[in-house]
């Protein structure tokens, strides 16, 4: 089996990890990352540590591993309780075939993770670069910050083709989160900068405590907090730049709405007040 890179060129056979048997015991698999696999034989990879519940095991105890040395990784099986895949990764690509557990792509700094199913909470939390592409839904705290931290995602791109839970992009410092479906509450809460694009329904209390940054609602949205003030209706050119890029990546974005007029609300005036929520208004 071969993967193709972004240019369509064939690459070396990837390393495939297949979960040996489904389990409800949480597995902390932060060693499942191209950074840990490069320069190691399959035997060495199998010897990498994972936590199976509270017990320390080897990767080979939990997964069947095959392939050849590559920075391309495929993970298969019922992974709903497998956490921290791609944690802190800086390069390569991980394709996750199925649903996956919490902290997927947390703290990642480069490379790409593609999840072909749903992800649990805290995906892409504290991300600093790279791209996390989720074909299904994502849980709460997508691209947010760990409790107690004052700054969350700082660069990188997260794309979710389905819906997301609450507090997406909370404490975000830089970067882009795109949600094709609906969101829960508190999108961009206490956001410092960056952008969150929502093509579905924007949930309640979006941008609560936001200092700077942009939340863009292309679809319907709940009434905004009273700490947001209407500024004007205009056509933001930067949205077109971003959407153009998303389309080049292959995301099926409806171009009509991106070319329309948006209502701009600034806030949150309980914080710095330089954030904005742009809500699609109409085509010119």
């Amino acid at each position: 089996m071969t993967l193709q890179n972004r240019n369509g060129d064939k690459e070396a056979s990837p390393i495939t990890l297949r979960l040996k048997e489904p389990t409800s015991i949480p597995i902390e698999a932060d060693t499942v990352s191209p950074d840990h696999f490069i320069g190691r034989s399959l035997k060495d990879i199998a010897a990498l540590p994972v936590y199976f519940g509270r017990r320390k095991r080897n990767l080979g105890d939990v997964f069947h591993i095959e392939g050849e040395e590559s920075d391309q990784v495929i993970v298969e099986g019922d992974l709903a309780h497998v956490k921290k895949i791609g944690y802190g990764m800086t390069r390569g690509r991980i394709v996750i075939r199925g649903n996956v557990g919490q902290h997927t792509g947390a703290c990642m700094r480069g490379g790409e993770i593609i999840v072909e199913g749903h992800v649990a909470d805290r995906a892409g939390i504290h991300m600093e670069g790279g791209r996390l592409w989720i074909k299904g839904n994502a849980g709460h705290l997508l691209g947010a910050a760990y409790p107690g931290e004052r700054r969350g995602v700082n660069r990188g791109v997260i794309i979710v083709e389905g819906n997301v839970g609450s507090e997406t992009g909370a404490f975000m410092r830089r970067g882009l989160i795109v949600v094709m479906g609906d969101t829960g509450e508190f999108v961009g809460a206490r956001m410092i900068a960056g952008s969150v694009f929502v093509f579905g329904h924007l949930g309640k209390r979006a941008g609560a405590g936001m200092k700077r940054g942009s939340i863009v609602a292309f679809g319907a949205c709940e009434p905004l907090l009273p700490t947001y003030r209407f500024e004007s209706v205009f056509q933001p050119v930067f949205i077109r730049v971003f959407v153009n890029r998303l389309r080049q990546w292959g995301l099926p974005v409806n171009i009509e709405r991106t070319e329309g007029l948006f209502r701009r609300y600034s806030g949150d005036i309980t914080a710095l007040g330089k954030g904005e929520i742009l809500i699609y208004d109409s085509n010119e």
Partner: peptide, 19 residues
């Protein structure tokens, strides 16, 4: 706004914004 390492400035103008 920053995307893929390219930064774009949005400067408020009387007709909207200059990017």
């Amino acid at each position: 706004k920053l995307i893929e390492g390219r930064r774009f400035w949005r400067v408020p103008m009387m007709d909207g914004e200059f990017v």
